[in-house]
Design a protein around this nucleic acid. Sequence first.
DNA 1: GATATTTGATATGGTCTATAACAATTATCA
DNA 2: TGATAATTGTTATAGACCATATCAAATATC
Lengths: 173, 173
Amino acid sequence: MTVSKTAEKSSGKSADPAKGRKDATEVQSEALQLGELSEQLGYVLKRAQLKVFENFLRCMASLQLTPAQFSVLLLVEKNPGRNQTEIASTLGILRPNFVAMLDNLESRDLCARIRSTNDRRSHILVLTDKGKAVLARAKKLVATKHEARLNELLGQANREALLAMLSKIASEF
Amino acid sequence: MTVSKTAEKSSGKSADPAKGRKDATEVQSEALQLGELSEQLGYVLKRAQLKVFENFLRCMASLQLTPAQFSVLLLVEKNPGRNQTEIASTLGILRPNFVAMLDNLESRDLCARIRSTNDRRSHILVLTDKGKAVLARAKKLVATKHEARLNELLGQANREALLAMLSKIASEF
DNA sequence: GATATTTGATATGGTCTATAACAATTATCA
DNA sequence: TGATAATTGTTATAGACCATATCAAATATC
């Protein structure tokens, strides 16, 4: 330990951290400087991702779909007749962790596991009629409430450029 | 359940999922179609974030610093004399979860808690000399191995545009 | 000076992620 | 063919991360 243990005063101000509810005679503790942090791609990327997921969950509150569940429904709809391993692996979900997820979707009658006749080890995944209906409503919510918000924040062109760069990072980094 | 339980054949092909190591007479199972998934900002954002963190950890392997730990060191260096609550909250870390994190950094002699003389409840955070040295090396690694990789993938201008858009999302979404 | 608030800390639970292992089934190949 | 290896879905389990309630010590408030 190379640091003196006798503390200098933290600052001349009061102990109130960052809420600014002292009266006007007190200089409220100024906000912290992010410094190089705001230039760190990983940091900003993570914060943005949390905000986007948060907004997604709010938009989907009526359907009770998480981003991960939505991605499963989308992928199963686009690729009917695939088994759990295939769906899970393309989503980056490990097979063991995919089981509980499917249990959930199946218990809500959104998708179904069907024992394959080709390979009786595997379960073919399909959307139920209810699953298709829910997914259709989910897509509309995402388009009108979620992605629309993005467009009005960034503009259509910027939003597409952002998507392209993120895709490049996701696939080539 | 509105789906017939008698499975149709998953496809005409073999059971080999996506690895393509059957011989040439077999049509290997084609890759799944991502479809609308590749247009979902949240999905691409999450995948990109995972890749970036993964690369960060590889670049920092010699220093054993996670992105979160790096952000703490950066913030403490930039804001000496702040207490745990202030540092944690600006990083979006809850106070209870920040304790173990600091225990780790302090046990490695990278930062130190100093009891404040102003407010004897709070712990002032500072970097030790070793912490400053390690952070300096970490910054170099990030700049030369991590961010440099981003620049060569996207180009300087695009990288800055990406950062700007992500910052906007993180703060205004 | 009595009450409320703040700080760091502990305990705890939930979710997400990662690995090992198992039974049933299928593939491989001697 | 039949013995062995590999695959599929599953369970169990452990770790990381995140969130809430609660506590003692210290401080603020009135």
